[in-house]
Amino acid sequence: MTSLPESTEKKLGLVIDLDICVGCQACATSCKEWNTGGYSAPLSDHDPYGADPFGAWLNRVHSYEVGEGRGSKTVHFPRSCLHCEEPDCVTVCPTGASYKRVEDGIVLVNPDICIGCKLCSWACPYGAREYDVDDGVMKKCTLCVDRIYNETIPEEDRLPACVRACPTGARAFGDLGDPQSAVSKAVADRGGYGLLEEFGYKPVNRYLPPRTANSNTASTSVVAKSAEAIPKPDGSAIERLFAWADQALSR
């Protein structure tokens, strides 16, 4: 089963809008909270109150600076498993614990047979696999498989925990294999991209790039029109203002 399916019926994944993400860490902690008691339970924490705490997290938020000076940007950058279409993290697994689901493309680890050899984590270029030192098995983003189909949860909440929590709405979930899905459309509209496509694992998750400054509609029109409208400074400003303000104005 470590052999990858020829194709999957759906390509479920996440779309993350880097133009909106403020780096608040809600997706990271809500993921930890859901999953520490969910399918992957527990996500252990080593030395939680000591000098060198580290725990298993399925979603982490990086921050980067890009470019220099005026044109530079700060970008907050959440990263979890991208549920690649052709990932070696599945094929290298000696036990079959790591697999890609035929029905939806979710890449999962079966925590009951994983031997914790960590090879899959070596094969993942995205750092999306987290070994749980205390539990002895590999953990990873499950796309909240125990939420998205969970009939005991109200339908509107059958979303990954991180998507449900994200306060800015920077995360969306859906079928990226269906060009008509909302996520696919957003990707098409905004030039969404996959990470390190050059590598060839065909990641499913997509990132929407930060908009280049002032590219949005309101501001371009604003800038264009008003730039020429800026009058040059001139000494009589106060008289002109008063004359103008002197128009009869009733209340």
Partner: peptide, 27 residues
């Protein structure tokens, strides 16, 4: 801020530091 950015409104941040909300500002 998510709504504003989603709608394409312009966000201007006045702040000595460019992180968080100020990182997603258009200016």
């Amino acid at each position: 801020i998510g709504h504003l950015k989603g709608r394409g409104a312009k966000v201007v941040s006045v702040n000595p530091v460019r992180t968080g909300y100020n990182a997603v500002a258009d200016e």
